[in-house]
């Protein structure tokens, strides 16, 4: 008994104050992020209560009449929820899987290139689309593929071909949207992966080279395993937003062109279309809350799954 107590006191955790003091520099560096998340994510959280009220402007969020789950009804009685969930989730899966694969591939390719100026230029050019607003992207796409005057349409016609009416063909749009999203996000993700490749211990690579491993083997047995934690963490982050669509991208590309809704309508665009004339803040918040809560449990589930496979890779 005595022994156990002594052992426990030997390994007792240092006090919180001591931990903070010991890690003061680290904490100071984290402070902006902590403040950011506190101010923009945690402080507004009580406001989610608005989803359960009949919001009155003059009474404020907390004094408006409480209506329970009434604001959640409209999404469920619309008869559209199935289609919306399907589209939203499938697009997100495509974005996450394809996005990560392409980003990884580009990062590895960049790493294999030896010319530094080329690397820098390639990164910058790839990164550029990330900064172009969705409004401009939609104009670009329109001016490329619109039937009457589009650049590609004219090109096809001048070559004697027949241009399909893309803006009337719902089946074409999953490809277009996924492509545009890849075009926009690849540069950003590539830099993230490239950074963690650069952070790798170079002695491993040198040892492999001396042992005669070729480029493919080095990638397969060193680079990819080293990147595994990054991939898993990014995946866990991304999957929390699986029910959230990129409104700007979808709305700007598709607009009110209902011929394309079958394959392009996501929760956000539906909510916008239903409520753009009624400005029901409570109902739109209810949808947001629904998405966040589902996302939260999906993250918990995915994290538990990862933990089950390999505790080292789990987020928490």
């Amino acid at each position: 008994m005595q022994q156990t107590v002594n052992n426990a006191s030997l390994y007792r955790r240092p006090s919180i104050g001591r931990t903070i003091w010991q890690n003061k520099t680290l904490i100071l560096m984290c402070l902006p992020a902590i403040v950011f998340f506190f101010v923009f994510c945690y402080m507004p959280m009580p406001g989610a209560y608005i989803a359960f009220t009949n919001f009155q402007y003059n009474k404020g969020i907390f004094d408006s009449p409480f209506v329970g789950f009434k604001n959640f009804e409209f999404l469920f009685i619309s008869g559209q929820l199935g289609l919306l969930l399907k589209n939203t989730v499938l697009y997100n899966i495509a974005f996450i899987v394809l996005g990560n694969v392409v980003q990884l591939a580009f990062a590895i390719l960049l790493n294999e290139v030896n010319s530094k100026p080329y690397k820098k230029t390639a990164q910058s050019i790839m990164f550029l689309p990330y900064f172009i607003s969705d409004v401009l992207v939609s104009l670009l796409v329109y001016n490329l593929i619109n039937y009457d005057y589009g650049f590609i349409s004219n090109l096809v016609r001048s070559l004697g071909g027949e241009m399909p009416k893309v803006y009337q063909d719902a089946n074409a749009w999953p490809y277009i949207i996924v492509f545009v999203n890849l075009w926009k996000s690849t540069g950003y993700g590539t830099v993230v992966y490239f950074a963690s490749i650069t952070g790798m211990d170079s002695s491993m690579m040198e040892a492999a080279q001396i042992d005669g491993a070729n480029a493919w083997q080095r990638i397969r047995y060193i680079t990819l395993p080293t990147l595994k934690p990054t991939v898993i963490i990014l995946f866990l982050f991304a999957i929390g937003g699986i029910l959230k669509g990129n409104f700007g991208l979808f709305y700007n590309l598709v607009g009110n062109n209902s011929m394309l809704f079958k394959t392009t309508d996501i929760i956000e665009t539906y909510v916008y279309r239903s409520m753009m004339n009624s400005f029901n803040f409570s109902q739109s918040s209810a949808v947001g809350l629904f998405q966040s809560v589902v996302g939260f449990f999906i993250v918990l589930g995915a994290n538990a799954f990862v933990k089950h496979l390999d505790p080292d890779y789990a987020l928490f």
């Binding site: 409209f74 619309s78 009110n256 239903s274 409520m275 753009m276 009624s278 029901n280």
Partner: peptide, 20 residues
């Protein structure tokens, strides 16, 4: 207050079909 939920759905239907 009575039929707002249905109004939102009508709004969606209208905005879906009427432009076409």
């Amino acid at each position: 207050s009575m039929v707002g939920v249905f109004m939102d759905n009508l709004s969606n239907v209208y905005n879906t079909y009427m432009p076409r």
